[in-house]
Design a protein around this nucleic acid. Structure first.
Length: 837
RNA sequence: GCGAAGGUGGCGGAAUUGGCAGACGCACCAGACUUAGGAUCUGACGCCGCAAGGCAUGAGGGUUCGAGUCCCUCCCUUCGCACCA
């Protein structure tokens, strides 16, 4: 065997071996338990980033581990290939999005292969291929016929200069990213998926997902946002203003009503009131983003209209307020300033009355309590008050209990080219007609270069002009495409069915689904995961996935990979400098005091955040692979932190990972030339098996950083052996197997070189030997008043009295208890003794 | 603003159940080997202190024989907020 570690040669050799044996291609096998391990597929942005390396290494470690544990493991890979960046690249480089995307896929596929992931490439898919998106279209037509897909108007960001719809990320501080024009809200017709049909089930089933992080389940629960309340009608002349509230108990404290600027009452009132019209129009300026809306200063204007309080008969003014959202509830609310912080802020600003009606604990006006100043309802608690008030309202026909959801239906229309065409034909006579199955897929032309002014499909007569599938007369094709979240909502099921062109999925999906382990970034905790859960239900009800509701049994949400970012302002333009090109100076506390580029110009430190193209702070993993090899890149990303933590990038510590793999090689090299004694070393063997026991626990709880450090500890222990013996051989074979899921290439090579077997991946996973873990004596820590004062060795079977005696006899312990009364002795078996004086 | 998570040496992190805080590694420091060292090996390495010892897990308070871990208040960072993926 070679004396020194050459990652390049070792990795090529191992990868050739796997390809030659088709090691990762799997089929259905009734003889083994199946394990479907899936990492979120990448958007083909150009090259892999650190988040990908981390994500796919986590999946690969699990895949290789479960294979060695005897499971039939599927780990596929594909491309989330539709999306906005391809159109942006097209505008910048005058290249069709299709070509740009396919080129990126080719490059990134080579990168993934160089990292040695155990992927079944025979199942590769790209969502921009007709054979994939055909089934988006097919399912859309099914849902459309059932009413689960439907058309209504939705609000979008409109750039008045480019005459185009903007994505939220294309709106910067309320202005269009290319034109700088103030963005307006515009209502346009769109298609929606009726995800709210499944709201109750999506919420209730969260409790049956023990393999999901509590954090994610809680976020989804809050997002779905079931609230039980009362719908209350306020008479306004001949009309009724309906509001929804979860605090009907505070109805007697309502001092005004507020409606959204888009509310029909506001629009109507604005027609006769130029000042109000101006205000309503002002509310239409700016982006649709909720985060932005929530932070704008609360503003309002009276409509001049009044409503009648349904119980007191009092006249209350109606205001238009920019903090009322048209999309939630009725787009209107009753304001109770005394018991709602936002209403209070608004009331103070505009001098509106505040009337306390609930006796609340001091300092918490929004807490439930007993009613006061509420006439006949005085003295009631929250539930009784709500019941009584709802009943009285019901008698007048002005209220009823209602369940309200925060979850909205999913708008899937995008006024963009690079996505799945929505399979609808608009016919003057027949209306919106879904494209029949035999005419699917509606093909997206691939030779288009968008220019940023609207959807280029609109300008293609050959695409738009068609015949109505229903009556055969000339008609227009829908030019909107689907949200790319549609593509990623079912790809996991499609991976089970390569080559299937007769149906969306087939019976093979019943073998592989659900995904046993899904791995991806925490940033997908809500939308992607919720949409996938919705799709699985919709497909189930279409007969495609019988009996299945939940697509992902276990979910691992990896933390984001963060890096520092730096910029400098050049005129009005902000230039972002890659951290690799910045040298920094830190003070003794580690705070950055100055940052300069290589040529000595000052740059501004902008803090730490997600690696992103816009801040140019990405670290290219390719440089890491080129310099150290794939095994080091994999080992480092596992060792650096547990998968669920954020990972703050530092290239300084990569060296240590490389050094460790080299040490493994050096040890194996020396072993290959040594002759071993037949004896074993009890003490070192104990250490190795103890580390193995902990490492096996850590793999099960997905803490791969401590598995990596267990490998280091085992090697450190082996190096302490006074001579080559059976413990060296056993320890090395354990080390190579334990390390193989993380660093598969070097362990593959050494396993064969040392004649442990032909293929480490097919070796059984090591389990600790109980005999090696047996000990006659154990060490106990002795504390006095909770402070460490010494330690004692006691026989394993020692009783309490013997332990107390030994603890008291310890000289250092004596120093602290001498002459004092020992009031209490706490003995924690196997751990410690605490003497309280 | 709302929802969620996190904060431990100079740095990444460990401590699985309330029981030895800082495993393992990086950086730094000292030494050995060497023509050389950005290689390798040995040692030291939280802070204060000559030592005994004391202090220390974002800040402040509480529960407990014992708190990084549980409870309360506050501060900071990251993620999501429905057209980025």
């Amino acid at each position: 065997m070679l004396e020194s570690y050459d990652p390049r040669a070792v990795e090529r050799e191992a990868q050739d071996f796997w390809v030659g044996r088709r090691s990762f291609e799997v089929g259905e096998d009734a003889g083994k338990p199946k394990y479907y391990c899936l990492s979120m597929f990448p958007y083909p942005s150009g090259k892999l980033h650190m988040g990908h390396v981390r994500n796919y290494t986590i999946g690969d470690v699990l895949t290789r581990y479960y294979r060695m544990r005897g499971y039939n493991v599927l780990q596929p890979m594909g491309w989330d290939a539709f999306g906005l960046p391809a159109e942006n690249a097209a505008m910048a480089n005058k290249v069709p999005p299709a070509k740009w995307t396919y080129d990126n896929i080719a490059y990134m596929k080579a990168q993934l292969k160089s990292l040695g992931f155990a992927l079944d490439w025979t199942r590769e898919l790209a969502t921009c291929r007709p054979e994939y998106y055909k089934w988006n279209q097919w399912l859309f037509t099914r849902l459309f016929k059932k009413g689960l897909a439907y058309k209504k108007t939705g609000v979008v960001n409109w750039d008045p200069v480019d005459q185009t719809v903007l994505a939220n990320e294309q709106v910067i501080e309320g202005r269009g990213w290319r034109t700088g024009a103030v963005v307006e809200k515009r209502e346009i017709p769109m298609y929606f998926f009726r995800i709210t049909h499944y709201a109750e089930d999506l919420l209730a089933t969260l409790d049956k997902l023990p393999g999901w992080p509590e954090q994610v389940k809680l976020m989804q629960k809050n997002w779905i946002g079931k609230s039980e309340g009362v719908r209350i009608g306020f008479e306004c002349g001949k009309e009724i203003l309906w509001v929804f509230t979860t605090r009907a108990d505070t109805l007697m404290g309502a001092t005004f009503c507020a409606v959204a600027a888009e509310h029909p009452l506001a629009v109507q009132a604005a027609q006769k009131n130029p000042e109000l019209k101006k205000f309503v129009e002002e509310c239409r300026k700016g982006a649709v983003m909720e985060a932005e809306l929530a932070q704008v200063e609360k503003k309002g204007m009276p409509t001049g209209l009044h409503v009648t309080h349904p119980l007191s008969g009092e006249k209350l003014p109606i205001w238009v307020a920019n903090y009322v959202l048209m999309g939630y509830g009725e787009g209107a609310l009753m304001a109770v300033p005394a018991h709602d912080e936002r209403d209070l802020e608004f009331a103070h600003k505009y001098n509106l009355p505040v009337k306390q009606v609930v006796q609340h604990p001091p300092g918490d006006p929004t807490a439930h309590g007993t009613l006061i100043n509420s006439g006949k309802y005085d003295g009631l608690g929250y539930p009784q008050a709500v019941d009584a008030i709802a009943a009285d309202l019901a008698k007048k026909g002005l209220g009823e209990k209602q369940v309200q959801w925060r979850l909205r239906d999913w708008g899937i229309s995008r006024q963009r080219y690079w996505g799945t065409p929505i399979p609808i034909v608009h016919c003057a006579a027949c209306g919106d007609v879904p494209v029949p199955d035999e005419q699917l897929p509606v093909l997206l032309p691939e030779d288009v270069v968008p220019d940023g002014t609207g959807n280029p499909l609109n300008k293609r007569a050959s695409y738009v002009d068609t015949k109505c599938p229903s009556c055969g007369k000339p008609a227009k094709r829908e030019t909107d495409t689907m949200d790319t979240f549609v593509d990623s909502s079912w790809y996991f099921a499609r991976f089970a069915c390569p080559g299937q062109d007769k149906s969306m999925v087939d019976e093979r999906a019943r073998y592989w689904m659900p995904v046993d382990q899904y791995i991806g970034g925490i940033e997908h905790a809500i939308l992607h995961l919720l949409y996938s859960r919705f799709f699985t239900r919709a497909m189930r009800d279409e007969g495609l996935l019988p009996g299945m509701a939940e697509p992902f049994t276990n979910l691992l949400t990896q933390g984001m990979v963060l890096a520092e970012s730096y910029y400098r302002d050049v005129g009005s333009r902000r230039e972002w400098i890659n951290p690799a090109d910045v040298s920094i100076e830190k003070d003794s506390k580690g705070k950055i005091i100055s940052a300069k580029t290589r040529d000595g110009r000052d740059v501004v430190y902008d803090g730490i955040g997600t690696m992103s193209k816009s801040k140019n702070n990405g670290v290219d993993p390719q440089a890491l692979i080129d310099q150290y090899g794939a095994d080091t890149a994999r080992f480092y990303t596992m060792f650096a932190s547990p998968p669920t933590n954020t990972l703050e990038w530092s290239d300084e510590s990569v060296d240590g990972s490389y050094r460790f793999l080299r040490k493994v090689w050096d040890f194996a090299y020396k072993f290959s030339r040594a002759s071993c004694a037949a004896s074993a070393d009890r003490k070192i063997r104990y250490q190795i098996h103890l580390e193995l026991k902990k490492a096996n626990d850590d793999i099960e709880r997905q803490k791969f950083n401590t598995v990596a450090s267990a490998c280091m500890k085992i090697l450190n222990a082996l190096e302490e052996l006074p001579e080559w013996d059976e413990t060296s051989r056993e320890g090395l074979s354990i080390l190579l197997r334990l390390l193989s899921p993380i660093a598969p290439h070097v362990t593959h090579h050494l396993w064969r070189e040392l004649k442990f077997g032909e293929d480490v991946m097919r070796a059984p996973w090591p389990d600790p030997d109980p005999a090696a873990l047996e000990q006659d004596e154990i060490e106990l820590v002795v504390q006095v008043n909770g402070k460490l004062r010494g330690s004692i060795r006691v026989p394993k079977a020692a009783d309490r009295a013997a332990i107390e005696g030994l603890a008291m006899a310890n000289p250092n312990v004596q120093k602290f208890v001498a002459g004092q009364n020992v009031k209490k002795v706490v003995v924690v078996p196997g751990r410690l003794v605490n003497l309280v004086v």
